[in-house]
Nucleic acid binder design. Structure first.
Lengths: 185, 185
DNA sequence: GATATGCAACTGACCGGTTGGTTGGTTAGG
DNA sequence: CCTAACCAACCAACCGGTCAGTTGCATATC
């Protein structure tokens, strides 16, 4: 068995991502994470300090990946919504992660990266509206909020409705079309 | 101190609603619930059997209240969306409760009442579409999903965006207008 | 090239506190 | 006096976190 600190870190992070996505912070068990990661629990504390620290690492990694992969385009919001939809269809656990974060984290802990990206997007939307490329029916923050909700609407349905869900392509089309209709297109 | 089984039940349910809304199932502590309810932990088990049983009671009570208070109107969906918005503005904890339920409950446990109401609403929407009272751009299930998401979009924003939230009346107007635009109105 | 040295990576066993759940008995009210 | 309502005290299992000690590997030394 070769030693490799970087690999161990990765395996812990991967196992923790699964566990936290599935059970949240309070429901996650550090022993289970260590077992799945194939290492001792103490390594987890050596590398990430605490259970909360580990969650932070998991969540930060997810946010970075998400922002890099999805991007943003104030001048083509329906396509942007489609990309958000695609991302969470590919990584359903990540949406759960974001939801746990919202529920279990005190409002005080805010990720600077997210705050910055948010400000940037609001600015871009405002410009696009001034330039007449995006209708001004909604304020920038309302647009962002609505589009995010619409893109993830199928995943956030109550389990009782899940049976009635149509195929992925149909769901995607509904998301894109809904955003288009918000923009009179 | 007078004895009153019914009052004790209510107090336990009220305390449990707070606790579960705030911390979820895994994060909730039965001792805390008992303390807030002003009774002994054993009463909680006498009346509700287990922690999970107590959550079920809390969640069922919330669903009943929600369904009774909000109702549904396939022929005036924007107003319906406004009522959904109002309900969760009045009871922010209830939206958290619904989210915990979705995250922490295995897909197997489904509430018959919700399934029945859902089927009924899908039927009503289909009729309204056939009668030409609701445009047929979206399938009934897509409409229901989109409207639900839009009505709760402000509450499900990431905490990083909360600072930018406008006043309640403005948020409500955005919700109603978004639904109207989905219906070409 | 054999051996000593230092150090980061890793581990098994353990700990104190917490948690959901129980029990045997007490008390108020009819 | 009987029953339903209530409770203090208790318990076993669990959980996050720690620690003394071991192992593998790179480098220095002869």
């Amino acid at each position: 068995m070769q030693r490799d600190a970087e690999r161990t870190r990765r395996q812990i992070l991967a196992a923790a991502t699964e566990e936290f996505a599935e059970r949240g912070i309070a429901g996650a068990r550090v022993d289970r994470i260590a077992t799945v990661a194939g290492c001792n629990k103490a390594m987890l504390y050596a590398y990430y300090g605490s259970k909360d620290g580990l969650f932070d690492a998991v969540f930060t990694a997810y946010v970075e990946l998400y922002l890099a992969e999805v991007g943003f385009d104030a001048e083509d919001l329906p396509t942007y919504a489609g990309r958000v939809f695609d991302y969470f269809e590919r990584n359903p656990g990540h949406l759960r992660l974001a939801t746990w974060y919202r529920l279990e984290r005190p409002a005080s802990t805010q990720l600077d990266a997210v705050v910055a990206v948010n400000a940037e997007r609001l600015g871009a939307l405002e410009e696009a509206q001034s330039a007449g490329e995006v209708p001004a029916d909604f304020s920038p923050v309302a647009l962002l909020s609505l589009i995010q909700s619409i893109a993830t609407s199928w995943s956030t349905m109550n389990p009782e409705y899940k049976a009635a869900q149509p195929a992925r392509a149909v769901r995607r089309q509904a998301v894109v079309k809904a955003v288009e209709m918000l923009l009179h297109r």
